[in-house]
Every structure is written in structure tokens, then in C-alpha cells.
Amino acid sequence: MDTPLAASVAHLTKTYGTGNGSVTALSDVSVGIRRGEFTAIMGPSGSGKSTLMHIMAGLDAPTSGQAFIGNTEITGLGDKELTLLRRRQAGFIFQSFNLVPTLDVRANILLPFDLDGRTPTAAEQHRIQDLVYALGLGDRLTHRPHELSGGQQQRVAIARALAAGPELIFADEPTGNLDSRTGREVLRILREASASGQSIAMVTHDPIAASYADRVLFLGDGRIVADKPRQTAEQISAHMLRTEMEAAA
């Protein structure tokens, strides 16, 4: 059966440490990331948004509950299976340090294929060529990461994440290290990718970044406190301010 969800979690709880010193990062979270949508996961520091993303991506294991990528349950999988799953079903864009410094741009983009020991199919090659062209990386393919600007590095990471057409792309503060103009450009690229069918989950605490998403999930104290369709940056800021004031009261 094909679900309309690219990833989902059910009754997810994650606690760090034991006894009195234990910290609950996530408590009984159930949510799905819909296919073809650009979902933003928002929340203040310590709200559990990064933990949620790490568990959904198979980078971290929950204390209890289940996590799925597509139809595959990933909780309980061994390290090897998880690694292969990430390689084949997930794409990653991090805040910084996205690229392997010893590999050139081309090799960085093709990394998921190379790790899998296969060459891209003709269709994939076609898609990669289109991506490289669309992201303006055509004359950068033989450059090393340190020869690129921050925005260019981020576009290489996007090309790598999109290249294999993964089930879901995880973006962790992808604009956190960029100036606002370059950041907007990166967000536009992500929105376009999602418009052509790519599912994306983006963790951010920037209301402007989140305003590019089709759906905004708000986390607070390890729970999902709101689930809203596309919002303007003003609406998102207002919501954050409101919850902040409620928490302080």
C-alpha cells in the first residue's frame, strides 16, 4: 500500500539520561510529512525539533515509538540497514560543512551514487545535468568546496540531495550560515524542488525561512503545539511571540 506520507512518526518519545537528570526531548509525538510538500519544523532551542528530524532521518534512535520513511519502519533497524536507507531514501542539507573537502563538486554531487557503488542511470544523469544547470554550477564542477562561496556550497548540497530523487530531503537550518539574499535564493530553490514533487522537511527557527514552506509545524517542550498551512513570516512571528509570552506568564 502506498501511503501519502513521505515519513511519519507515531507516539515518539525520546529521553536523554536516566533518573533525576533525565531530559525529555520529545514526548509522545505523532506526525506525518506529506509527500510532495515542503514542511517546516519550527520551535525555539530545546523544543526537540532537531531530535525529531534526526530520528525521522534514521540518525538517532527513539526511546519509544515508531518512525517510518515511506512504508518502511526504521525503528529497530540495524546500523547497516539504516545507513543504506539514508543513502538511498534520504537527502541531507546541513547548516554548514555539507561537502567533503577532498572531493570536487562533481564527486560531491555524485557521492550518494558512488557510496552505493553504482553509476546514475540515464534518467538520473539527465536530471543531474538539469540540476547542475539550473543551480548555476555548470562551470564549477571541477572546483573544490573551499573555492566556492557559502551559497554555492549550499547549492551543491541541494544538488546532491536532489540527485538521487530521495523519498525525503532533510534540511537542518539550511540558511543559517548564509546572508539573507543568498538564503532567500536557497529557499526559492527548495520551494521549486518541492513544487515539482520532492518532499522536503526543514528544521529552522527563522520565520522568513519557514514562510517558504507549504506547512509549518510548531514544536514546544517536546510536543507539536501547532500544525498550520502556509503562513506569512509575520503570522509565524506573531505565533512564536504569543507562545513565548504564554510560556513566560
Binding site: A57, L59, D79, K80, T83, L84, R86, R87, R88, F92, F94, F97, N98, V100, P101, L111, P112, L115, D116, R160
Partner: peptide, 16 residues
């Protein structure tokens, strides 16, 4: 460390 962490995230197995 960070680079190896990135590679693990992208799907480099411990064997690799």
C-alpha cells in the same frame, strides 16, 4: 569528526 559524521549521515557504512 564532522566530515566523518557527514559521510555517515549520507550513507557511508562503518565498513566503508
Amino acid at each position: 569528526r564532522t566530515e566523518l559524521g557527514l559521510l555517515r549521515a549520507l550513507g557511508l557504512t562503518t565498513g566503508q
